[in-house]
Design a protein around this nucleic acid. Structure first.
Lengths: 343, 343
DNA sequence: ATGAAAGCGCTAACAC
DNA sequence: GTGTTAGCGCTTTCAT
């Protein structure tokens, strides 16, 4: 046996020859279509089994009227990020139940890569795509969508029309988080956010502003740090905050890696028991840190399920108006967000 | 614009008609093959662009001699598990650089699901598969392999021949971990492991036994707990250990979720500063816990890269003898594994 | 209930 | 350089 597999794959033709029926009859049996006698059916099945016949979905879909590949594309920013991975898993589960497989790719939040991956997917004639749009313009996505490819955006909405999306309560939950901190007596609440080009970052920042306003607090620009992509950058930014003359007494960290970076610094400076932290996005082991980290948790399985439902329905021909589904996030109090201000 | 895309996709035929050349010439231009005049080439390109032509890889591969779909299947236990996700990402990266896309699926360590997914992949004529084999028998994998499908197993080796695999130094690294604990004076070192049907669990247990023996310690069966699948079960088992008359003073936790469960219990019982812990498999934030968790870290990118290299080479026709690549893991000392026994 | 012929979009093999 | 013919494995259409 060698790795490259020499024997020619048996085809319906071979099965037909062995079963002494026409190729069309084989097609009927393999696809479970009516119009095949019981005895003939059995003969075909036996022939297929003995030859080791396997249906060729790619040839079938080429000829079939519906042209379905029973495959969808999923393009997320980074499949190794816990949030993306959980989302992929949720989409995959629901798709599989409909016999649909997932071609998965990481865009790295890079337009060029995103476009290349879209081209690769379309060359394989996927039935639809679920995309976490790269920040900035969405030209390639819009172009693909306008060609008629069914598309659902997750986490971030489209900047063009006619397309479904699924997001969470970024603004509302952020506002609630800030209000909670304010209620604990905090007046110097910092905002630490991911890239400003990301819609989620903007929404969470807007929620932060709304929270401050609603609590009657004034914004201190010095307490706002954005474009923190990755743990390391977040650490630097957090450290800088505590070198201020009047450092914050509470942090609202608007993304999971940012939260991690912030916690590292607080721990290093032994501030973790005095400075309150609420993070957006849950992360594994948040409950095991000291203190356990209070977070706004997105309903990732819910988002994935909704995205899968939408794309599958669109593929199935659903032409109802585009939907922007909003899946509620919830505040999970664990300790870090319940630290009161020293007054 | 509606979601279902009505217009018929333009084909090479359409492009040929518009450019007033034969379809074969279009094929040459699209595929960058020689034998097309400069002026004609430009005319074809223009026609393709104006029609919005997109090559159909699925039709092409049906006809082409090599029959490549430029797609591989990746079946892991759970794509939302950090280890699996990181591995997927590594494989995906390397595959993409060769123009290969990844069909990804979670087997849930379930044979039936694994077999169904294999069938789905083979119906789509993937060029090869990278699989984290479900525990127990590997009948479906062997069957698929014997059909000639290029295959690489990761994390766990095949129980049949003629197949590449990539694993880590499970036994050696486990032995080293136990020896390290013993060197710190620990004589009651517990083993907490995942499902016994998993090869990795067995290897790590064997390494544990070797470590004990080499350190001159005798095995206490009461300190061995296996089949701990998931955090919750691991917590129960850990708690039981500390209800023993002579509880362990050190733990070797042989999987990341088990480590997390154990840390939870130690924390809850305020034992985390007295009981030493070394875990197999790193996990996010292990360094932020109190104490930071000492782990045996697998080289996940290395494993993924090797697996990708192997599968791509086999697809490319490499018929050299099967390889069992072993990617070294390393011990990452962070604190929990450096707690000495009270003597 | 079964089959023959045509053709999905493309490329192989061979013309010219 | 360019085109023609055949056919990949399958489904469609229409016949019997």
């Amino acid at each position: 046996m060698d790795q490259a597999g020499e024997r020619r794959e048996p085809t319906m033709r071979d099965v037909a020859a062995l079963a002494k029926v026409s190729i069309k009859t084989v097609s009927r049996v393999i696809n479970g279509l009516p119009g095949a006698g019981t005895e003939v059916t059995e003969r075909v099945r036996a022939a297929a089994r003995s030859l080791g016949y396997r249906p060729n979905l790619t040839a079938s879909s080429l000829r079939r009227a519906d042209r379905r590949s029973a495959t969808i594309g999923v393009l997320f920013e980074d499949l190794s990020n816990p949030f993306d991975a959980a989302l992929l898993r949720a989409v995959e589960d629901h798709a599989r139940r409909s016999g649909v497989l997932v071609l998965a790719g990481s865009t790295e939040d890079d337009h060029t890569l995103q476009r290349e991956l879209l081209v690769s997917l379309s060359a394989r004639r996927v039935d639809g795509v679920v995309v976490m749009a790269a920040g900035g313009h969405q030209d390639a996505l819009q172009h693909e969508r306008e060609r008629g490819t069914p598309m659902v955006l997750v986490d971030r909405p489209p900047t063009f029309g006619g397309t479904d999306c699924v997001t969470t309560t970024n603004r509302d939950s952020s506002r609630a988080a800030v209000l909670k901190l304010a209620a604990l007596g905090h007046r110097d609440i910092a905002f630490l956010g991911d890239r400003r080009t990301l819609w989620t970052s903007q929404e969470r920042y807007t929620g932060y502003l709304e929270g401050l306003a609603q609590a009657g607090l004034t914004l201190r620009e010095a307490l706002v740090r954005t474009d923190l992509h990755g743990v390391a950058v977040a650490e630097t930014a957090t450290a800088a905050l505590f070198d201020l003359d009047r450092p914050p007494t509470a942090l609202f960290t608007a993304q999971n890696l940012v939260t991690v970076g912030a916690m590292r610094v607080l721990r290093a400076r032994d501030l973790h028991r005095r400075v309150a932290v609420i993070g957006f996005d849950d992360f594994p082991l948040a409950d095991l840190l000291d203190p356990a980290v209070t977070v706004v948790r997105q309903d990732v399985p819910g988002i994935g399920r909704k995205a899968a439902e939408l794309i599958l329905a669109r593929i199935d021909g659903d032409t109802s108006p585009p939907v922007h589904a909003v899946v509620p996030a919830s505040l999970v109090p664990r300790g870090s967000g319940e630290i009161a201000a020293l007054s």
